[in-house]
Write a protein that binds this DNA or RNA. Structure first.
Lengths: 107, 107
DNA sequence: CAAACGTGTCGGAAAGACTTGACATGTCGG
DNA sequence: CCGACATGTCAAGTCTTTCCGACACGTTTG
């Protein structure tokens, strides 16, 4: 995870779960680590990836560091997804249409 | 890419680009491979990953194989994203609110 | 049927990600 | 100040991904 790619950041289930936890409000690195059966350094690295991807904000407070969701982070995913969303919604209005469309072969 | 995880499938930029191409309609494996500076086996493997993730459908027609978008594939992503989408939309109504919220430290 | 075509899969090399244990940095309490 | 605490970072091992060249398989064409 060397680049700041949001999609790569989301590829890891632990990181997705961290984002889910953070939906309930900011948490310290330690509190987050406590929720997983992982070494603390591992969690720290996951947090670093999320931070580089712009998915979380880090606010140090004394010797603790609170992480919270970065509202703007997931907009890139949403934006990428949007054209597809329209596409599949159109087709799912009638599932039979989708199945019929599978038949159109151009030899 | 051993699991069928949709998010892992989307982590690769080539695969995201393939999905983008397929938005214009079904394409053969060869036509897809022709769009990239990659060996055909590499593209074939990407297609395999997309298929396992349920993001594309494969319909063989003679000795060609047409790939097309699987409408239902991305719904998992959309579903996961949805709660966050509401969250960040609420906060982005006023960006200054977000910045202010960063200030709330609980020692 | 044989040659040409479209494509998938196998073996292996190079690059990258994930994890862990050990160490470094900065902060709080006495 | 000094020890305890919260956390980040480094080095190394292992597993996974990605890519390529070569080969295999079914389909079409002559």
């Amino acid at each position: 995870m060397v680049d700041n790619d949001v999609f790569s950041a989301l590829a890891n289930p632990v990181r997705r779960e961290v984002l889910g936890l953070l939906r309930g409000g900011p948490m310290t690195a330690g509190a987050i680590a406590g929720r997983f059966e992982l070494s603390r350094p591992a969690v720290s690295e996951h947090l670093r990836v999320l931070r580089l991807a712009g998915l979380v904000h880090e606010n140090p407070s004394g010797r603790k560091r609170y992480y919270e969701l970065a509202p703007e982070g997931l907009t890139a995913v949403s934006a990428w997804l949007h054209p597809f969303e329209r596409y599949w919604r159109d087709r799912l209005t009638s599932l039979s249409d989708v199945l019929d469309a599978d038949e159109k072969e151009q030899p």
